[in-house]
């Protein structure tokens, strides 16, 4: 009990949480590394992969599309209002396009996928863990990392960039619709400005971010699902942790990738 009163207690708490975080990073990295290593070792479960592709890619389209549409529209309004302060309203098309492609498309798309997919993966795998289905897989000579994790991670890594690309287009279209209907832009001029100013790298960098975010989302969903505690409470906690961790990691990775891509 005397330890609880010692002046070093706050320091010890900080130390503990730092150590805990580092250990966590180590475990997640190992998990991710093991997942990737299964990519190079058969057998592969093609059906599981296709199923995951539909679940993660196709069924996320509406959410990602709506997010992009409204974001593009709001972005156009904001940039118009901001640009008006120094008579630069004409930058709306190019800034909307660059902002969507480089930053908002991948980040908001990634976060929406995190909410939708990390949670459902964690809940599904967590429930399988709690009801001994993961143990059953092992006894049936099927590696859960190959059968459950790899298909989902691979599907998300491939599908999220496509979602981001579609989201970019829809977001730019949202900006265009607002620009033309509310801000008196000429429809053809707006489009021409967009196309003239948008560079390939603006789009490609966003797609690469999307792939990284997809990987993060599925990996966190699988990691927390596989390590779910017992009972319904354990699954609930796993689901929550997966979404939180995926979201924070997406924002952190976004910063790191932006630094890498655009400050050289």
């Amino acid at each position: 009990m005397s330890r609880a009163l010692s002046p070093a207690t706050p320091l010890a708490a900080v130390g503990r949480s730092v150590l805990g975080t580092l250990a966590m990073i180590g475990r997640v990295s190992r998990f991710a590394g093991e997942t990737v290593s299964h990519l190079f070792r058969p057998p592969f479960y093609a059906r599981e992969f296709l199923h995951a592709l539909v679940q993660i890619g196709w069924l996320s389209l509406p959410v990602v599309g709506l997010t992009a549409l409204f974001t593009g529209g709001a972005l156009a309004l904001q940039i118009y209002a901001g640009g008006a302060r120094f008579n630069a309203e004409s930058v709306v098309p190019s800034i909307v396009a660059i902002g969507m492609a480089r930053e908002l498309g991948p980040v908001l798309g990634g976060l929406m996928v995190a909410a939708r997919v990390a949670s459902s993966i964690a809940a599904e795998i967590g429930t399988m863990k709690v009801t001994e289905q993961i143990d059953a897989l092992v006894t049936l000579s099927t590696n859960p990392m190959k059968y459950l994790t790899l298909p989902r991670v691979l599907a998300a890594t491939l599908a999220v960039p496509v979602l981001v690309g579609v989201g970019d287009a829809i977001g730019i279209m949202g900006g265009w619709a607002v620009g033309v209907s509310r801000l008196d832009f000429n429809a053809a001029v707006y489009l021409k400005n967009t196309i003239d100013f948008l560079e390939t790298w603006d789009v490609v960098s966003g797609l690469i971010k999307g792939a990284a975010f997809g990987f993060i989302v599925a990996t966190m969903g699988c990691y927390y699902g596989m390590n779910s505690g017992r009972g319904a409470q354990g699954v609930g906690r796993a689901t929550k942790s997966a979404v939180v961790a995926a979201s924070v990691l997406i924002l952190a990775a976004n910063y790191v990738l932006t630094e890498l891509f655009f400050t050289a």
Partner: peptide
Amino acid sequence: LARFGMLFQGGALFD
């Protein structure tokens, strides 16, 4: 594991 079969207490069917 190929030599084993196991019935789990809760069934553990893949739903």
